[in-house]
Design a binder for these strands. Structure first.
Lengths: 142, 142
DNA sequence: CTTGAAGCTACATACACTGTAGCTAATGGG
DNA sequence: CCCATTAGCTACAGTGTATGTAGCTTCAAG
């Protein structure tokens, strides 16, 4: 039986985050000691590892909820899990494209800064005047 | 004199967002009509354009606050603005690198899915067992 | 039996908005 | 001048994904 702290260490999660996952129903309510402390078994360790790994791959908690549910029904079609993963891949590719445009713009901004006074600063100038941008970039909220 | 709605349209911002920026002190308190409605001039239009453009480039509101402050003092050294932009560029490059690793992993996951039952689903399997990953990826919170 | 680490709950905070409810002002047409 | 519509107003709650804090309790080792 693992304490919450041990589980946290084993999965690279903060203790609060585990309690948060429990609160939103992503992790089950575990057994408790007489004193009221949480104790976890291997099933919980596996589940939390799955969650953390999926989070590292950028899946939302909602997507993870679906994936967990699919995993709980071994007879179900794999197609849904595949769709979720494909959706995620697409999102990642979109973000990549946007970030690349941003990098270009930022690089240009920084390269042109001559180190003088802010009155002539290229960084501020570029920010002031969008028309100077060579690329499209619409990053907000990504 | 522009209404908040016109300003919103011209800058591609939601009306609420403009009021939010005012609330957090990023935009000044504008003049009001007798009836209490906000009216904006060109200075505000410029300022908001600057803010939105910087947001599109991924700068945080805090960074933007600093940049605005630098812009208000034309005699100051450009170095600070440059440092902020460089910091931002570095962040973008880090995110790019991480996203590339993620894409690789997700692509592999999706390619291997044979479309059978979830019991044999490669997508779920990969998520279950981190050791199957070929690349490092530590995306959370990016 | 004591001590100190680790656990507990409940609540606040972060970021950058977005949405809602319920009301008021401004504007254009008849 | 009156009415309807559009746009504005405030105040507050909610989003997602945690993280931090205060003040208390339990557990395990010595």
């Amino acid at each position: 039986m693992l304490t919450i702290g041990t589980l946290a260490k084993k999965t690279g999660t903060k203790v609060q985050t585990i309690r948060y996952y429990e609160q939103i129903g992503l992790m089950p309510e575990p057994d408790r000691t007489e004193g009221g402390q949480r104790r976890y078994g291997d099933a919980e360790l596996d589940r939390l590892s799955f969650v953390r790994h999926a989070r590292q791959l950028g899946f939302s908690l909602e997507a993870i909820r679906e994936l967990l549910d699919l995993g709980d029904h071994p007879g179900k079609s794999c197609a849904e899990a595949d769709a979720i993963a494909r959706r995620q891949l697409k999102q990642v590719e979109q973000r990549l494209a946007r970030l690349k445009a941003l990098r270009t713009e930022l690089k240009r901004m920084v390269q042109e800064c001559s180190g003088g006074q802010t009155a002539d600063c290229r960084v501020l100038e570029v920010l002031r005047d969008h028309s100077e941008c060579l690329t499209d970039h619409e990053e907000i909220g990504a």
